[in-house]
């Protein structure tokens, strides 16, 4: 492989070679890297995100604040759950009661970071991804709904929701 590439590079002008590689060819190292990325992409869809996004462990108390603040987490716009302090909860997503028992940490993290990995048609916003977004308002451009640490806090809180009563 590498030998053939070398030969071609010697035989052709550099500009033509760049064009060719831009269109179809990839150098083998890059191809290998992409294969790994694609694999981890599939794994993320099926098995979630096992690795925490930050070195600091999530703080469940801060996570609780974020989840139950309709202005910040927005979660209760769609989800009911064990949140007696929230006056009105929405009906668009499943009740989060017991979610820490039925989903793994990796799963919960993936659901918050970018729920589209598990369900491309989801209506749950991607909380830590700007990928593929369209017509984002000027003041929110380039920002995510949550920081990496906030995601970890929320995941840590969700993991505590293991009881089966709201």
């Amino acid at each position: 492989m590498r030998g053939r590439g070398m030969r071609r590079r010697c035989a052709k002008p550099l500009a033509a070679e760049k064009r060719r590689r831009g269109k179809v060819g990839l150098n083998p190292t890059l191809r290998a890297t992409l294969a790994v990325l694609a694999l981890s992409g599939t794994a993320a869809g099926a098995d979630g995100l096992a690795t925490p996004l930050t070195a600091t462990p999530g703080d469940p108390a801060r996570g609780a604040q974020i989840v139950t603040d309709p202005q910040h987490g927005l979660c209760t716009l769609c989800h009911a759950g064990p949140f007696p302090q929230v006056a009105f909860t929405g009906t668009l997503g499943p009740d989060l009661t017991g979610v820490g028992a039925r989903r793994t940490l990796a799963d919960l993290r993936q659901q918050i970071v970018d729920s589209r990995r598990a369900n491309p048609d989801t209506i749950m916003p991607p909380y830590h991804s700007t990928e593929g977004l369209n017509r984002v308002g000027e003041r929110w451009q380039g920002t995510t709904l949550m920081t990496a640490q906030e995601v970890e806090d929320v995941v840590a809180y969700l993991a505590t929701l293991t009881g089966d009563t709201p």
Partner: peptide
């Protein structure tokens, strides 16, 4: 029917698919 904004929702996802549901109150 095009998803828009940081919340990545289309008009249709709320007004066709989820009308009758509640967004908070």
């Amino acid at each position: 029917t095009t998803r828009m904004g940081q919340l990545n929702l289309s008009c249709a996802q709320c007004h066709d698919d989820n009308s009758g549901g509640h967004l908070a109150a």
